[in-house]
Computed example of a mutant assay.
Amino acid sequence: MPAAARVDSWLWAVRMFKSRSGAAKACSGGLVEVDGQKAKPATTISVGSTVTARVGDRLRVLEVTGVIVKRVGAPEAQRCYLDHSPPPPPREFVAPAGVRDRGAGRPTKRERREIDRIRGR
Protein backbone atom coordinates (compact mmCIF):
# COMPACT_ATOMS: atom_id res chain seq x y z
CA MET A 1 0.00 0.00 0.00
CA PRO A 2 1.27 3.49 -0.79
CA ALA A 3 1.73 6.04 2.00
CA ALA A 4 -0.27 8.76 0.23
CA ALA A 5 -2.64 9.14 -2.72
CA ARG A 6 -4.59 11.74 -4.64
CA VAL A 7 -7.99 12.39 -3.10
CA ASP A 8 -9.88 11.98 -6.40
CA SER A 9 -8.21 8.64 -7.05
CA TRP A 10 -8.89 7.44 -3.50
CA LEU A 11 -12.56 8.44 -3.59
CA TRP A 12 -12.96 6.51 -6.83
CA ALA A 13 -11.02 3.51 -5.49
CA VAL A 14 -13.20 3.22 -2.37
CA ARG A 15 -16.32 3.42 -4.57
CA MET A 16 -17.72 6.78 -3.47
CA PHE A 17 -17.90 7.85 -7.13
CA LYS A 18 -18.53 5.76 -10.24
CA SER A 19 -15.65 7.34 -12.14
CA ARG A 20 -12.43 9.11 -11.31
CA SER A 21 -13.47 12.04 -13.48
CA GLY A 22 -16.67 12.32 -11.40
CA ALA A 23 -14.57 12.45 -8.24
CA ALA A 24 -12.29 15.06 -9.82
CA LYS A 25 -15.30 17.20 -10.80
CA ALA A 26 -16.61 17.01 -7.24
CA CYS A 27 -13.22 18.17 -5.95
CA SER A 28 -13.02 21.01 -8.47
CA GLY A 29 -16.58 22.01 -7.66
CA GLY A 30 -15.82 22.44 -3.97
CA LEU A 31 -17.78 19.39 -2.80
CA VAL A 32 -14.77 17.67 -1.18
CA GLU A 33 -12.76 18.74 1.87
CA VAL A 34 -9.67 17.12 3.35
CA ASP A 35 -9.06 17.86 7.03
CA GLY A 36 -11.41 20.86 6.86
CA GLN A 37 -9.79 22.45 3.77
CA LYS A 38 -11.32 22.56 0.27
CA ALA A 39 -9.54 19.94 -1.81
CA LYS A 40 -8.34 20.04 -5.38
CA PRO A 41 -8.24 16.70 -7.23
CA ALA A 42 -4.48 16.36 -6.67
CA THR A 43 -4.64 16.99 -2.90
CA THR A 44 -2.81 14.16 -1.14
CA ILE A 45 -4.35 12.13 1.64
CA SER A 46 -2.76 9.67 4.03
CA VAL A 47 -3.88 7.39 6.84
CA GLY A 48 -5.64 9.47 9.49
CA SER A 49 -6.96 12.14 7.10
CA THR A 50 -10.63 13.07 7.24
CA VAL A 51 -12.36 13.40 3.88
CA THR A 52 -15.76 15.11 3.70
CA ALA A 53 -17.56 14.71 0.38
CA ARG A 54 -21.04 15.47 -0.88
CA VAL A 55 -22.01 12.38 -2.86
CA GLY A 56 -25.37 12.77 -4.53
CA ASP A 57 -27.65 14.22 -1.87
CA ARG A 58 -25.68 12.79 1.08
CA LEU A 59 -22.80 14.19 3.07
CA ARG A 60 -20.14 11.53 3.61
CA VAL A 61 -17.53 11.96 6.36
CA LEU A 62 -14.77 9.38 5.96
CA GLU A 63 -11.67 8.73 8.05
CA VAL A 64 -8.90 7.20 5.95
CA THR A 65 -7.62 3.91 7.41
CA GLY A 66 -6.00 2.59 4.24
CA VAL A 67 -4.63 4.23 1.12
CA ILE A 68 -5.38 2.57 -2.22
CA VAL A 69 -5.12 3.90 -5.75
CA LYS A 70 -6.62 1.00 -7.71
CA ARG A 71 -10.29 0.11 -7.59
CA VAL A 72 -10.86 -3.05 -5.53
CA GLY A 73 -13.83 -5.12 -4.44
CA ALA A 74 -16.42 -3.49 -2.21
CA PRO A 75 -15.55 -5.44 0.99
CA GLU A 76 -11.87 -4.54 0.65
CA ALA A 77 -12.69 -0.92 -0.19
CA GLN A 78 -14.81 -0.60 2.97
CA ARG A 79 -11.78 -1.59 5.06
CA CYS A 80 -9.96 1.53 3.84
CA TYR A 81 -12.19 4.01 5.66
CA LEU A 82 -14.32 4.52 8.74
CA ASP A 83 -17.66 6.11 7.96
CA HIS A 84 -18.63 8.92 10.34
CA SER A 85 -21.44 10.19 8.10
CA PRO A 86 -24.72 11.38 9.54
CA PRO A 87 -27.58 8.95 8.89
CA PRO A 88 -29.39 9.48 5.59
CA PRO A 89 -32.68 11.33 5.77
CA PRO A 90 -35.69 9.02 5.91
CA ARG A 91 -37.25 8.31 2.56
CA GLU A 92 -40.72 9.63 2.12
CA PHE A 93 -43.22 6.93 1.42
CA VAL A 94 -45.15 7.79 -1.69
CA ALA A 95 -48.26 5.76 -2.24
CA PRO A 96 -48.63 4.60 -5.83
CA ALA A 97 -51.12 6.96 -7.41
CA GLY A 98 -53.48 5.80 -10.06
CA VAL A 99 -52.75 2.10 -9.92
CA ARG A 100 -55.30 0.32 -12.04
CA ASP A 101 -56.27 -3.30 -12.08
CA ARG A 102 -54.79 -5.31 -14.89
CA GLY A 103 -57.15 -5.47 -17.83
CA ALA A 104 -59.25 -2.50 -16.66
CA GLY A 105 -58.52 -0.59 -19.84
CA ARG A 106 -57.54 3.01 -20.27
CA PRO A 107 -58.64 5.53 -17.65
CA THR A 108 -61.56 7.75 -18.54
CA LYS A 109 -61.08 11.50 -18.75
CA ARG A 110 -62.50 11.89 -15.25
CA GLU A 111 -60.22 9.18 -13.82
CA ARG A 112 -57.20 10.69 -15.55
CA ARG A 113 -57.96 14.10 -14.01
CA GLU A 114 -58.21 12.51 -10.56
CA ILE A 115 -54.88 10.75 -11.10
CA ASP A 116 -53.24 14.01 -12.17
CA ARG A 117 -54.70 15.81 -9.14
CA ILE A 118 -53.31 13.16 -6.79
CA ARG A 119 -49.88 13.28 -8.45
CA GLY A 120 -49.84 17.07 -8.13
CA ARG A 121 -49.71 17.93 -11.80
Rank of each mutant, 00 (worst) to 15 (best):
M1G: 09
P2C: 12
P2S: 14
A3I: 13
A3H: 14
A3N: 15
A4D: 13
A5G: 06
A5C: 10
R6G: 08
V7Q: 01
L11M: 09
L11T: 03
L11R: 03
R15W: 13
M16G: 00
K18H: 11
S19A: 11
S19Y: 04
R20Q: 12
R20M: 09
S21G: 05
G22Q: 15
A23C: 12
A23M: 11
A24M: 04
A24Q: 14
A24N: 05
K25F: 08
A26C: 10
A26V: 06
C27Y: 00
G30L: 13
G30K: 14
G30H: 14
L31H: 14
E33A: 12
V34K: 02
D35V: 06
G36K: 04
Q37K: 14
K38T: 10
K38M: 11
A39C: 05
A39E: 01
K40H: 05
P41Q: 07
A42E: 07
T43E: 04
S46F: 02
S46T: 15
S46E: 15
V47Y: 01
G48Q: 07
S49E: 03
T50A: 10
R54A: 10
R54M: 09
R54T: 13
V55Y: 00
V55W: 01
G56D: 09
G56R: 07
G56A: 08
D57Q: 09
R58S: 10
R58H: 08
R60Y: 04
R60F: 02
V61D: 03
L62H: 06
G66H: 01
I68L: 02
V69M: 07
V69N: 04
R71A: 05
V72C: 04
G73C: 01
A74F: 03
A74Q: 06
A77R: 05
A77N: 04
A77S: 10
R79L: 13
Y81G: 04
L82N: 08
L82K: 14
L82Q: 12
P86H: 02
P88W: 01
P89G: 05
P90E: 12
P90W: 01
R91Y: 02
R91T: 06
E92R: 14
V94A: 09
A95I: 03
P96H: 13
P96R: 15
G98S: 12
V99E: 10
R100F: 12
R100G: 10
R102K: 14
G105E: 09
T108Y: 03
R110P: 00
R113F: 10
I115P: 01
R119H: 04
R119K: 15
G120R: 03
R121A: 13
